[in-house]
Design a protein around this nucleic acid. Structure first.
Lengths: 348, 348
DNA sequence: CATGGAGATGACTACTTATTCATAATCATT
DNA sequence: AATGATTATGAATAAGTAGTCATCTCCATG
């Protein structure tokens, strides 16, 4: 036992307490006891426990989480990944994903987990997901959006269990998915536009992502069944680029019913339509998708297909927790909801 | 050397390779060599290194990050905290913070760091920040917004160096801050409104947060100097509640020049003004703050005070990296920029 | 007084990797 | 051929905590 521990020495200040062992020396107990005391275990004498906890507080000591996690083989960390396979310039700025992310973070925090956020641009690599699941860093993974990485996610899901994914349900898929019935949403939008008198439709949005493609295809089917044309304008989902694209595309577009892949696109379209002098909903009607908060704030307020973000976030987290404890989970495909506002006409 | 390695045995499948030692056994080298090989160190024979790396790939082996981080005493993790001291219902939904978060995540990813996202509602606890800095979990911390927690941040900054904060610069403060000159922004907004003919001003936004208070006070000073009244309408920053509040407050508000604490409030105000039949900018002019992407998409497009989010994110990360390597850093207070669009009148 | 049991604590080890130090092997030089 | 320099590798250790097991103390019971 060195003698510079008990009496602080000439410099007067005790060393910084960095480890359990440091605190143990000061408290006159063993490191093991300190560990138990700070964990609030009942195996330590209540008095000793209080003394140690007080001491820890005085010295501002907190156990090193890395060591704790390594030892206990639980990290308390959930990886949240946003793959940006298409739309490189989209960054994480997509308000729908961000809202979902926020709610997921809420739910995870509530459950005592921390969130490790990772944005990946898969590009040519296919191990972006493996790198996270195989790292021992996280107890589970939530993937926000499948982008164009369906196959990669699928192959990881075969051997990695604690993972849930926001996105589109494809029959027979392995990975546990929570999402919206995009086909139903697309159908609702097209049917609504047609019911309110639209005679020529346009779909605004790139269909690289599987979710948006499903919306497009469902709308297309409805239009064809009704004998109404539907053109596809591949507008970017990134806020920065969609504006110019719409300005280029809309003046030549003769459709009187627009179905936008997202509220953001719809909002931008509203502005462009206003600029080129087309009245909404009299000259042209428009339906968005998501029902973000801003959908009710546009002028005119936006008719849109609502996705239940809060429910989705809760389901993603609940199912993930179930899977972490080894259970199996069903998919969850929420029915979207048509929210009628003023960007489409009143019922005849 | 056990004999069940070379020929997989009756069960056919080789065991899962979980640790360096496992792989070392298979490769016929020591764990240390595997560690060096996978780290790409030059101390191993190139041929051996390739062989080990190939083997690792075949077995889908990745070193356990927790152990690695514990050993090397670097976590590669940056904590990003959003304190929500006021505005509990705001969640992380605030688009300005989310945009900033996205850009910060970009910058950190670029520098090889991972992001640990934590949303805290300090409420009555004062150790929300200590708990993160003292946990040994992160190499550094970025705090997005000071909320009403200036003192807590300040006290942590005294002993915890690798931290940068987005927010307001207060003379004499210890913690390294990056932000916008809010007073200048407030001044610019008020002066612009007055120059364009406004004769009675209103400020829309709660002033609990230090940044917004600075905007308000600067605008107030300008108004007083010009002999023009300025009323304060404490509108929530949360998207869900600001709408009803504006609907309640704006009809009775006689001001012909509105300065909104955020673009979101301004956008919501535009809608309410439209509903109650007041024309923008003819009857009433309005200036926002932030210059989010949506500011250019409103109708009419929004005159606003632009904050450079991209620059801010880059500065927060660059300064943090400098502080992690022990350097000291200056504050950075960016001058905001007046972006004139159509929600204010043309120059006379 | 001896035994049993409960309660409290310390010693030790596992978790997995990175690094240091020492050793072995190879090659060039005198 | 012997020495030194160089390279490659293994063994041992350290990072800090959590959990297991053994030990020790104390008190009650017979």
């Amino acid at each position: 036992m060195k003698n510079n521990e008990n009496h602080p020495g000439k410099n007067g200040e005790q060393q910084k307490v960095r480890t359990l062992a440091d605190l143990a020396r000061i408290a006159g107990v063993s490191a093991g006891t300190v560990s138990r005391a700070l964990a609030g275990k009942s195996l330590v004498n209540a008095e000793t426990r209080d003394r140690i906890q007080t001491l820890a507080r005085e010295h501002g000591f907190r156990p090193n989480q890395m060591a704790s996690k390594l030892r206990s083989q639980k990290t308390g960390l959930i990886g949240v990944v946003i793959p940006l396979g298409h739309e490189k310039r989209q960054h994480v700025s997509d308000p729908f994903f961000l809202t979902l992310l926020g709610q997921i973070a809420d739910e995870l925090t509530e459950s005592g987990y921390d969130v490790m956020l990772r944005r990946v641009i898969p590009d040519d690599t296919t191990d972006w997901l493996e790198r996270l699941t195989g790292s021992g860093m996280v107890d589970g993974v939530i993937v926000i959006g499948q982008s164009d990485q369906f196959d990669v996610i699928e192959s990881v899901a075969e051997h990695y269990h604690p993972m849930t994914v926001w996105g589109h349900r494809t029959p027979g898929q392995t990975h546990c998915v929570v999402g919206t019935d995009n086909a139903l949403g697309g159908r609702m939008a097209a049917e609504h536009l047609i019911a309110r008198g639209a005679r020529s439709l346009a779909f605004l949005g790139v269909t690289t992502g599987i979710e948006i493609r499903a919306r497009y295809e469902a709308a297309k089917a409805v239009a064809e069944a009704a004998g109404i044309p539907l053109v596809h304008l591949p507008i970017d989902l990134a806020a920065a680029t969609m504006g110019p694209q719409l300005e280029a595309a809309l003046p030549d577009c003769k459709a009187d019913g627009l179905f936008a892949a997202s509220d953001l696109i719809a909002m931008s379209a509203l502005r462009v339509l206003h600029q080129i002098g087309r009245k909404v909903p009299d000259d042209v009607q428009i339906v968005g998708f998501d029902d973000l908060l801003l959908a009710s704030q546009t002028m005119p307020p936006l008719t849109t297909i609502r996705q239940e973000i809060g429910l989705g976030a809760k389901a993603l987290v609940d199912k993930l927790k179930a899977r972490i404890s080894g259970e199996d989970t069903d998919h969850l495909v929420n029915a979207p909801q048509l929210i009628v506002r003023e960007s489409t006409r009143k019922a005849a």
